[in-house]
Every structure is written in structure tokens, then in C-alpha cells.
């Protein structure tokens, strides 16, 4: 069996680029952009999101035969909120500074459309291992976009990558200046717009 035909492989890889949650499904942008000023916060957000979406998919898939259809949304929300509480308490205990910077946006994973979307669309009708892989794939796909956006914002906005100065002093002396605009909210919208443009043009050429 070729690797690319393998169902598990597809479940984890497809969300990455082809149907990347942010680009094509247009979901989950909500809480994504506010944490992209620094790469560090974006990375933590991406990992938290991956944890929540994969674990909730796994749990929902495990109990999918016992969830009554008409209250399934409430059940899913309860599972997701419990996981978010766990991750929030974890961050507050071990990474207090980052958790302060992420502020309310960890909590907002609950209303993130990707999480509910994946449990609804995939986990409810697939076996646990596939559901878990699909969750991991979606979480990574989301994290990839977050980190990409935060890379541009941190690099152009403060000349740093992961908090380390990468644009040398000599260039600043020569007259280069950081773009303060990149640190403001509108820059995130515009970067996402440009990324969508890039991705759509690239995948159009492939067809």
C-alpha cells in the first residue's frame, strides 16, 4: 500500500495544506490572530490547540455510540471546555508569563470553530485512532498558519525570531527601522489576506 493512499496518513496530512483549517475552511480565525505578535505565544497557542482538538476528537469518538444525537453539541462542548480548563490551569501553573500574555484567548478555544467542527464532522463518524490523527493534523495545520503569521509580525515588527534579535545592530545604524505597524491588529488581517492569495494562486496552478 502506498503511503499517500493510507487512510491514517491522509487523516493527518490532508488538513495541513490542502484543507488547512485557516486557509480553506476559513474557520478558527477567531482566537488565532490576537496571539501572533510574538512567535512564542503563537507556538504555545498552537500546542494547546492541538492538544484540545486531538483529545476532544479522541474522547468524542470513543463515546460516539452512546451520545444521544439531540444533545450531542452540549456533550461536545462539555468535553471541550473540560480540556480547555485543564490546559489553562496547566499553563498558569508552569508558564505563568505566557499564560498572562495569552489572557482570554486560551479560553476562547472552546468557541473555536475548528474544534467543534472536527468533532461534529469527523469524530462522530470515525473510529478513535483516525479521529485522534485527524485532530492532530488539524491542530498542526492551524499551528502552522499561526506560526507563519507570527514569524512575519515578529520579524518585521521587532527584528526578532522567538525573542532572539536576528536583524543585526549594524543595519539599524545604517537607517533600518522596525515596522511598528506589524505589531498592531490590522497587520494580522492583511498578512492572512496575502497568505490566502498566495495559497489560492499556488493551488490553482497545480490543477
Amino acid at each position: 500500500m502506498k503511503l499517500s493512499k493510507n487512510k491514517s496518513f491522509k487523516a493527518i496530512v490532508r488538513p495541513f495544506w490542502e484543507s488547512n483549517p485557516i486557509h480553506i475552511q476559513m474557520l478558527g480565525i477567531c482566537s488565532a490572530l490576537a496571539v501572533t505578535v510574538q512567535m512564542k505565544t503563537a507556538l504555545v497557542m498552537a500546542l494547546s490547540m492541538t492538544f484540545v482538538v486531538s483529545t476532544s476528537s479522541l474522547v468524542v469518538s470513543l463515546i460516539r455510540k452512546w451520545i444521544p444525537a439531540n444533545i450531542r453539541i452540549i456533550v461536545e462542548l462539555a468535553i471541550v471546555s473540560t480540556l480547555v480548563i485543564i490546559i489553562d490551569e496547566f499553563l498558569r501553573a508552569f508558564f505563568y508569563d505566557i499564560s498572562k500574555q495569552l489572557s482570554v484567548f486560551v479560553g476562547l478555544i472552546i468557541t473555536n470553530c475548528i474544534v467543534l467542527g472536527r468533532t461534529e464532522a469527523f469524530a462522530l463518524s470515525n473510529p478513535p485512532h483516525l479521529a485522534w490523527l485527524d485532530g492532530v493534523g488539524n491542530g498542526f495545520g492551524y499551528g502552522f498558519v499561526l506560526i507563519l503569521v507570527s514569524f512575519f509580525r515578529e520579524f518585521l515588527g521587532s527584528g526578532k525570531v522567538f525573542g532572539i534579535q536576528v536583524i543585526p545592530k549594524s543595519i539599524y545604524v545604517a537607517g533600518y527601522e522596525d515596522s511598528g505597524f506589524m505589531l498592531l491588529a490590522p497587520a494580522a488581517f492583511i498578512i492572512i489576506g496575502l497568505l490566502v492569495w498566495l495559497q489560492k494562486s499556488v493551488s490553482a496552478r497545480k490543477d
Binding site: 489576506g193 492569495w197 494562486s201
Partner: peptide, 14 residues
């Protein structure tokens, strides 16, 4: 082509 729709919406939002 690539900009029409979602991409343009995001830039206008910006």
C-alpha cells in the same frame, strides 16, 4: 483570481 473572495475580505478588514 487568488485574491478575490476571502483574501480581499481579510485585507479590507485590515
Amino acid at each position: 483570481y487568488g485574491l478575490a473572495g476571502y483574501g480581499l475580505t481579510m485585507i479590507v478588514t485590515g
